[in-house]
């Protein structure tokens, strides 16, 4: 892919805070007209990357182009082509929803009448017509997020940055945001979506870059990422937890890597090379070992497992325990 068909190209971005790097050789290429997921745990550098690409943040090394323009030397051109919905709603909460959208439209130098008409359209599309003239302060979290999203869509931008757009939203609002993103992409916009939710990346993004500690550690479609950690896995659920060690011994003989045991769900799993052989071997050997299996199956790994494999730690749980450690320290 040449630079020209790419909506976003970042090469070797570095951003330092004090003595540590928030981005440390961050590379990313996003094709036009797709949703690209940037998946990573808290503190991985997602927001830093988005802020650099949307011209908000200076950086210490590397280069980046958005919509074909350099984010430093041609920042004005970039700003005409992007929309940004950050982690926190960036609207004027004193003004009404309509006043916000008209104001942003005027700042894009739309004429007064055009800005008003566009505001009405967006209020309608995001189900905010009823609340259009109320102060933003009275909006719920979901409404505010939708207003924020509407504000970044005034010109239906070429490239839209969505930084954890559904964090803190209830499931219904989250589905609304997902629908809006799908509709946008159908209209030709390129979306860079950051998320900590593997499910969200899986749902929306054609391609996913996994970011950890300031650099991309893996990239591909959700299926490719799953395949990369060893393809199919065999999974055995035993009836009696006491038989887990015996089951693990069997699975260890069949699989190509150490089995993982989950006592809560009485589950043993391991990657396998040959699907059908593994399945028949497992049935026979478990029977021979006297292990009563409730379920034996083959499945592709979840994105969570892919993440664990690629970064050496779990996505959400590790971030949580880190946070706990920090408060304890």
């Amino acid at each position: 892919m040449t630079t020209n068909d790419a909506a976003i190209v970042a090469e070797g971005l570095r951003k330092r805070y004090g003595s540590s790097y928030a981005l440390d050789g961050f590379d990313l290429t996003v094709r036009r007209g797709v949703v690209h997921g940037l998946l990573g745990p808290n503190g991985a550098g997602k927001t830093t990357a988005v802020r650099i690409l949307s011209t908000l943040l200076r950086f210490d090394g590397g280069s980046a182009r958005v919509g074909g323009y350099d984010v430093v030397t041609e920042a004005d051109e970039v700003r005409r082509r992007i929309g940004l919905t950050g982690q926190y709603a960036a609207v004027d909460e004193t003004l009404s929803g309509r006043q916000n959208l008209v104001m942003f439209g005027r700042l894009y130098h739309l004429g007064a009448r055009q800005a008003k008409r566009r505001a009405d359209e967006l209020l309608e599309q995001f189900g905010l017509t009823q609340a259009a003239d109320r102060s933003g302060r009275t909006y719920s979290g979901g409404m505010r997020r939708r207003l924020d999203l509407a504000a970044s869509l005034i010109l239906a931008p070429e490239v839209l940055f969505l930084d954890e757009p559904t964090t803190g939203l209830d499931p219904r609002s989250r589905n609304d945001v997902w629908d809006a993103v799908r509709a946008l992409v159908a209209g030709g916009t390129t979306v860079l979506l950051t998320t900590q939710y593997l499910e969200e990346a899986d749902q929306l993004a054609g391609r996913i870059s996994v970011i950890d500690a300031g650099r991309v550690v893996a990239e591909g479609t959700a299926d490719e990422l799953k395949a990369r950690i060893g393809g199919d896995r065999i999974e055995v659920v035993v009836r009696d937890a006491a038989q887990l060690p015996a089951a693990a011994a069997v699975v260890a003989r069949i699989g190509t890597a150490e089995p993982e045991t989950d006592a809560d769900t009485r589950r043993v799993s391991a990657p396998v090379a040959d699907r059908m052989a593994a399945l028949t071997d497992a049935v026979r050997e478990l029977q021979a070992a006297g292990v009563v299996a409730e379920d034996i199956g083959l499945r592709r790994p979840t994105l969570d497992e892919a993440f664990l494999h690629l970064t050496g730690h779990r996505a959400e749980t590790d971030a949580d325990t880190d946070a706990v450690k920090e408060t304890a320290a």
Binding site: E77, Y108, H109, E121, F126, L155, A156, A180, A183, G188
Partner: peptide
Amino acid sequence: MSTMLQRPPGLIAPPPD
């Protein structure tokens, strides 16, 4: 919400002068 969010015709920021 599920309507197409396409760029309305003619809606582009004027080029910087």
